[in-house]
Amino acid sequence: MTLYSKIIGTGSYLPEQRVTNQELADQLAAKGIETSDEWITTRSGIAARHFAAPDQKSSDLAVNAATKALEMAGMQPNDIDLIIVASSTPDFFGSFPSTACIVQQKLGITNNGAAVDVQAVCSGFVYALSTADAFIRAGVHKNVLVIGAEVFSRILDFNDRTTCVLFGDGAGAVVLSASQEPGILASALHADGRHSDILCMPNTFAGATAGEAYLYMDGPAVFKMAVSVLEKVANETLEKAGMQQSEIDWLIPHQANLRIMSGTARKLGLPMEKMVVTVDQHGNTSAASIPLALDAAVRDGRIQRGQNVMMEGVGGGFTWGAVLTRF
């Protein structure tokens, strides 16, 4: 009997504080930094984003999203035997204990199942989902909670208008379970460390911290890389699954920049109507962006059972990947 992994529940959470472009522009203007709603929207497609409250951590956002995914899946927390959290903004500096362990504790899971963080920045959810699929197919785990959670507002330089207007906070989650029915059909993951400097947080650790503790991005270089790799990795994943571009029902790219997303859809021969877009309301939420968009499209009825969904991400490292699933 062939064993598959299938998404049986989705969930998401956005912090209460919603900040529009105009509100952010007004806040920056008070500091002498000039920007506008038009400037932000034209370059990114972003109209608003959410920022976490001062006492909210990535694990708090993750738990809210995970609880909704468990409810949809009809599961109790102790049914989960593996938690994988993708995040570039973990609860603890130095990344331990892992945010996944904190999520396990906050969910009240006591079955001693495994918990681990994955760090691939904006590709993190795709990496985590592919990893969970491999564990399930190998028969090692049965029910995996895969979460992308970020509080990027904590690492933004609000004196740099080229980056601070692009990102937001949030979390998305799925329950991935062993199934006799096809679920995840294929995936592909890649990285090229030669480009690690174009999107990074140049704060190093060697006994003590050193460097700038804010996100740095070479926008034009990131744009060029993203456009180059996203079409290729989607086609690679389709080839592994023995499928054609026309068989994609929904495309959910990493929600970073509407121009990158639209360009990828065109290269794959997909109409804009088949692409899920939440970047306009969420901003770039890094590892949380794909599961946030997935949950939005599932809950509003766009994504139906039996449809093929292509999810793909690209992020610092430089990393990229795609997962094709039959929902």
Rank of each mutant, 00 (worst) to 15 (best):
S5E: 01
K6R: 15
G11A: 07
G11T: 09
Y13A: 11
T20W: 11
A25S: 15
A25L: 10
E34W: 02
A62N: 10
V63G: 13
V63Y: 15
N64V: 00
L70F: 08
G74A: 09
M75G: 11
Q76R: 14
L82T: 15
I84T: 10
S88G: 14
D91T: 08
G94V: 11
Q104G: 03
L107T: 07
G113A: 07
A115D: 03
G124T: 13
V126G: 01
Y127C: 00
A134V: 14
G148A: 01
L156G: 08
D157S: 14
D160M: 02
T163D: 05
D169P: 05
D169Q: 05
G170R: 00
L176E: 03
S179V: 11
S179Q: 05
G183N: 09
L185W: 07
L185F: 04
R194C: 02
L199I: 15
L199V: 13
P202A: 09
N203L: 14
A208H: 12
A210C: 04
A210Q: 13
Y216C: 13
G219A: 02
V229L: 04
M243W: 05
I248Q: 08
P253V: 05
H254Q: 08
L258R: 05
R266L: 07
L268A: 08
L268T: 09
P271K: 11
D280S: 08
Q281P: 00
T285K: 00
T285W: 01
A287F: 11
A287Y: 09
A297W: 00
R302C: 09
M310R: 01
G321C: 12
A322N: 13
